[in-house]
């Protein structure tokens, strides 16, 4: 059984702790709020450059990309998000050459693990921070990344960009 002084000190100690709590919320009432007003703030919204929202295949001004249709990204993808559909084209000197026909990417399946970009030997794909990917049908999430009529860039870019991206040798 508690003594009477304990009972009283419990009572007032408790009230004091409650008042301290109230003072914290009172202070909060007058501080600036942290909510971001999206989409009103679209023009000022900063999304970090490294944010992975969508896989894209950069094309230059001549509508050329760097994908050689080697299929390494497809092989490295853990859950079959990427489908590289090559076509065989005969060059002028009569040799057959494998070129990219369609590069199909299913955004709905993607886990954004970045393995495809890391392992791409020709730096043909990258992730962008364009995060507004909502669509009304799932079908729209399946995208073709190479543009209509695009071609393979003639020269490969020099030097691989990071250190671990030596491609797997077996196909």
């Amino acid at each position: 059984m508690r003594t009477f002084p304990e009972y009283i000190s419990d009572l007032f100690g408790g009230i004091k702790s409650l008042l301290t709590g109230l003072s914290v919320t009172w202070k909060e009432l007058w501080t600036k709020k942290v909510t971001q007003q999206y989409p009103e703030n679209r023009s000022t919204l900063v999304i970090s450059d490294r944010f992975r929202a969508e896989l894209v295949m950069p094309h230059d001004e001549n509508n050329e990309h760097a994908c050689t249709a080697c299929g390494i990204c497809q092989m490295n993808c853990p859950n079959g998000t990427i489908q590289v559909i090559p076509k065989m084209v005969e060059t002028e000197d009569g040799k057959k050459k494998k070129l990219l026909d369609r590069y199909v990417y299913d955004l709905g399946m993607c886990t954004f693990c970045n393995l495809c970009v890391l392992t791409c030997p020709s730096d043909a794909i990258k992730f962008t921070n364009q995060f507004e990917n909502a669509t009304f049908t799932r079908g729209k999430l399946v995208q073709q990344l190479n543009k209509e009529g695009s071609q393979l860039r003639a020269k490969k870019p020099a030097a691989p960009k990071t250190q671990i991206q030596t491609p797997p040798k077996e196909a």
Partner: peptide, 13 residues
């Protein structure tokens, strides 16, 4: 609205 202000939010807007 007041709840939101206590909670560092804006509330209905």
């Amino acid at each position: 609205k007041i709840t939101a202000f206590f909670q560092a939010r804006i509330g209905p807007n």
